[in-house]
Nucleic acid binder design. Sequence first.
DNA 1: TAACAATGTTATCGATGTTAACTTATGCCG
DNA 2: CGGCATAAGTTAACATCGATAACATTGTTA
Lengths: 213, 213
Amino acid sequence: MPNNTPSLKFAYHHGDLPKQTLDLALKTLRELGDAAISLRALAKQLGVSAPALYRHFSDRDTLLAELAIGGFEALTDRLGAVDQTTPRTALIEIGLVYVKFAQEEPNLYRLMFGGRVLPLGAHPRLDAAGKRAFTVLENTVSNARQLGYLKPSPVSMTTAAAWSLVHGLSQLTIDGHLPSAKAEPTLTEGVLSLLLDGARSDTRQQSQQDSNL
Amino acid sequence: MPNNTPSLKFAYHHGDLPKQTLDLALKTLRELGDAAISLRALAKQLGVSAPALYRHFSDRDTLLAELAIGGFEALTDRLGAVDQTTPRTALIEIGLVYVKFAQEEPNLYRLMFGGRVLPLGAHPRLDAAGKRAFTVLENTVSNARQLGYLKPSPVSMTTAAAWSLVHGLSQLTIDGHLPSAKAEPTLTEGVLSLLLDGARSDTRQQSQQDSNL
DNA sequence: TAACAATGTTATCGATGTTAACTTATGCCG
DNA sequence: CGGCATAAGTTAACATCGATAACATTGTTA
């Protein structure tokens, strides 16, 4: 007798094991970190033998990569939803959204940018997902520069500075080296403003070779 | 009969196993990353049984913590050696030295700031070593501010911005997301200058609430 | 020299990732 | 409708790892 959802791929023995595996892995990641993700433990909780998971994930690392891809997609969505009407607010808001994502999903963010696991080049789909998130930030910077809001520095350099700032702030806050937004709500915006306006006290349009040290 | 080096701690069966263990672990870390550090493998290479290492390191994590402590001490030394005569060059140089360290010791740097392993609070001596490195940077910022070179923003905020920038740039370059100093020699200094001078094109002394957007 | 602590050893436990070989369910196709 | 290829699961097994317990040996010292 046919199922009520005809075109949907049938649940085999289990009910859509791949998705349930990813869901449980994501839950474990959020609560305990990636080191706590064990294929055997996942399988046991899903009522399935451990090698069953290998029918759907060739490797533990590719399962982790799948989680990271989902993270980059979520981040890309959030960054893409930022209001882009004025350059400054767009830049600030992009930074705020970025740091907020990291602080809301610290273990996922660490997995996405761990470096130790999931090195660049090993999982092409993951690399592509990361690049898409980066492009949103780059486009925002590029747009602000074309509108004359930013200095005519190379886009790559301004983007590198912006990304480094938000990434570093994210890492340092979720690791407890700097106060997170809950303890210091104005920190992120203040730091972003410093990059835009300059940390130096006397800021006319000049560069360092004018040497008024 | 006394040994020729009287005050030196005696080599037991092995010749200073703790130090040799740390040396080999550091070598392994540099070449293969922290995930490749296995107590059993270390012991085998040292010609010793695995549980022997537990006489000197209560845990695998404390061995890793010891490596990270050494890393922070090396970083602190390098940061402390920076010339502090003029605020701007001191700030720039601190950043250059910081990023250079990360790029020269990527696996060690990742261990020091991994977050996954060695979370803050688990190894007090490690936390203290990290704090000492941070203090060098903080003092440099604080000094530059007192000399009037930096805006009168709170020191904590300016320091957070500076640390976030160099830490983020370090992470992103050693993970391959941004070009390293070898591929783009001017990137680090350019990014640092952006923070000092501001990324915005029109930079008079004003803050964002002046609203000339 | 006898007690004692420091430093090793072997044996063992429990957990992990992964592969091989086998079994069963499912959907397609003649 | 029946057989068959294959997708999806099973058990068994291997290698490795961190860690502990129980025991042996070496060096120090009262």
